[in-house]
Design a protein around this nucleic acid. Sequence first.
DNA 1: CCAATAAGCGGAGGCGCCTCCGTTTATATT
DNA 2: AATATAAACGGAGGCGCCTCCGCTTATTGG
Lengths: 219, 219
Amino acid sequence: MELVEKRAGRQLGSGDAAEEKPMRADARRNRDRLVAVAAEAFAANGVQTSLEDIAREAGVGIGTLYRHFPTREHLVEAVYRREVDLLCQAAEDLAKRLPPDDALEDWLRHLVSYAATKRGMMDSLRILLDTGSTIFADTPSRISQALQGLVEAASKAGTIRQDVEAADILQATSGLYSAPETPDWKDRALRLVSVIMDGLRHGAPRRTDGDGASANTGS
Amino acid sequence: MELVEKRAGRQLGSGDAAEEKPMRADARRNRDRLVAVAAEAFAANGVQTSLEDIAREAGVGIGTLYRHFPTREHLVEAVYRREVDLLCQAAEDLAKRLPPDDALEDWLRHLVSYAATKRGMMDSLRILLDTGSTIFADTPSRISQALQGLVEAASKAGTIRQDVEAADILQATSGLYSAPETPDWKDRALRLVSVIMDGLRHGAPRRTDGDGASANTGS
DNA sequence: CCAATAAGCGGAGGCGCCTCCGTTTATATT
DNA sequence: AATATAAACGGAGGCGCCTCCGCTTATTGG
């Protein structure tokens, strides 16, 4: 689960040059903890979560938080970036560990968490847009690429129907981002994933199971 | 100087119906003081001025400020609205008290103060835009209309050249809003006004003075 | 292994935001 | 003028933000 994040230094806006210095071990550890804790907190309570709470939860002083992330937006950007990294990383890992169609299904479940985090952070993300951050330039294509790998593998293995592409699936799941903020949001989202996967498997050349539902709604 | 402001109640966003209740005398007085003080403070120190300072300066408790203006943006909107009102009011007053071209010149000087306030508030005004406030719908046309009255009067009196319209002058002064934030900003702005007025008078059918500079740089 | 030292830590403290509620006061009623 | 009452006042207090700086510790070179 511990994703090694390269480029740990400055970001937000694009006006820096000399970087890439190796960070001291404790600094890196603290920084990673902060981002991880913040991700959880933002997803659960929205971006307005008290930074002091996050620091405490991560077991560091508030000063440490502020040294690493001078503004709330810096932290938000780091969280968002990590989320995308994790998502792409997960695609690779799953592809190795599972049959292609199961990998795809699991990855879509990851996508649901990603969406959850993203919706919690929407407001701050909009601010980042104004600030001229660069995250948004490559993110969509990175995600799309990760998905494409999974889709192609499953397609080649013949366990999903042949005529769908990454773009189709992203479109099918786009409802995740705009759906209302109900408490059972996550259940609905996972159900949607399950439906889509059933659909994809149904039209496959080699069926893996009878054409019933695929069960497994996760925890 | 005391402009009587109708509609003292809710605003910001457009989702209110029943309004226009007569306000208690002390409430109205405090509200007006707050807006006046805030206008000065915002122009001098920008919108980030401490609300506590503003309340103190206005001689009211912080609670009073918050009752009248639940968020900083509500206060900003009120200030901005008042600024526009004062500007339009000034146009009428000046038209009555001075020869048309002098009225026009003085009004342009008012416009400079307006611009000063507006630049101090830019950031918050942008937030207001997102909030969906209605101020921006009619403001430009109101200002434009006020100016038009002055221009037509002066034109009719023959003390400025005949072929200019309000729009021309607004365009000529548009530099006020984007000019850099230097300390001598106001001097430059007033100099610009002076130049424009000289130009307008120069092409007039009946000259008021020789074609030299018009002096009078105000205080 | 032991300094030396710079990188990092963390929390006290100051400030601003905002709410809540006991007190004051303008206004309507008699 | 006296009274009732709802409207308005104001500031204490709680919380979050952020800075500043004395202390701690990982790292380096001997």
